[in-house]
Computed example of a mutant assay.
Amino acid sequence: MADTAPPFDDVLPEALRFRSPAPLVDIGANLTHESFARDLEATLRRARAAGVETLILTGTDREHAQQAVTLARRHPGLYATAGVHPHDASQWNAELEAAMRELHRQPEVVAVGECGLDFNRNFSTPAEQQRAFEAQLALAAESGLPLFVHERDAGERLREMLHAWRDDISRAVVHCFTADRDTLYGYLDLDLHIGLTGWLCDERRGHHLRELVGAIPAERLMVETDCPYLLPRNLPAKLKGRRHEPALLPWIVREIAHWRGDTEADLARATTATARAFFGLDEPARKEGHRDG
């Protein structure tokens, strides 16, 4: 069957065809988003051409987690998370909990989440969010999987809940970190990992992060696009449609490296080593799960 997706190089102009000096792991890619439906294969080819060899597909609800697992089975180098985003916490019930528990048994699933607290928009009430998050903390403790956490305007309460479970959970990352210094240090005190996105590249909202990135130990730092969201605002060329994608991760790494005083190559190697260890990607069981992918 003919490939109806746009040609490989039509989406990204020449100025945006970056190449990382070392392989990268994008720990947060929403490739089940409808905007990737027409050109997913080309998106993955562009990612690999940019040196983004491994992608963790974010499962924010039952449907998208199942889709992420399906994609991970089809494509080498792809893995999935499975959780319920705080926006959808009102849907949490015993049936959904059972479905998540089954998803966490799949070899393609490498983390519980995206889950957490979002008191900024409150699409689900704070009480509903805390109930769903508490249940998913228990699932992370039960499964031994790391936790993939979302937090916005809820740092203090999130830290309280994580503190109560910290000894029972293997590892946890606060993905797409955008908060302040006190919140960052609170997370680091809990031995959490931090995921950074193109928010750092936004002069309107993310400039404060430039002063904080140096405080994150290399063994706790990971990188992500959170695509199709959070397209970096300071890209050297305009992107038609303004959809973010994994091939742009090297630009984010370059920006983070600049503000940390690191070389791009050193930061790429460090974040990749950290991500592979965090998600257990080098464990034999993970490779087994992709043998027939």
Rank of each mutant, 00 (worst) to 15 (best):
L162F: 13
I56D: 00
V149Q: 04
T197M: 12
D26G: 12
V84R: 15
A141L: 02
Y185V: 07
V11I: 14
L158Q: 06
C227P: 07
G241Q: 13
K238L: 05
K238N: 10
A89S: 08
H207S: 02
Q130C: 03
N93H: 08
R286Q: 04
D153A: 01
Q130N: 11
P76K: 04
L57V: 15
L158N: 11
T60N: 08
G293E: 01
A285Y: 00
L137V: 03
K238E: 12
R48S: 12
E14K: 11
D3Y: 10
T54C: 06
G77K: 08
L230Y: 06
L139A: 05
D202R: 09
K240I: 01
D182N: 08
D266P: 07
A270S: 02
H85L: 02
T271N: 13
W92Y: 06
D182I: 14
G241C: 14
L192D: 13
A127Y: 09
A215R: 11
L44R: 08
D266M: 11
S170N: 02
V69Q: 09
T70C: 03
M100Y: 04
W92L: 07
R45I: 11
S90L: 02
H64C: 10
Q66C: 02
I216M: 11
A138L: 01
P6L: 11
D182H: 11
D191R: 01
E288A: 09
T125W: 14
T178W: 02
L200R: 03
K287T: 15
R48V: 15
A42N: 09
E255I: 12
L209F: 13
F278N: 08
E211C: 07
D191C: 07
E245Y: 02
M100W: 08
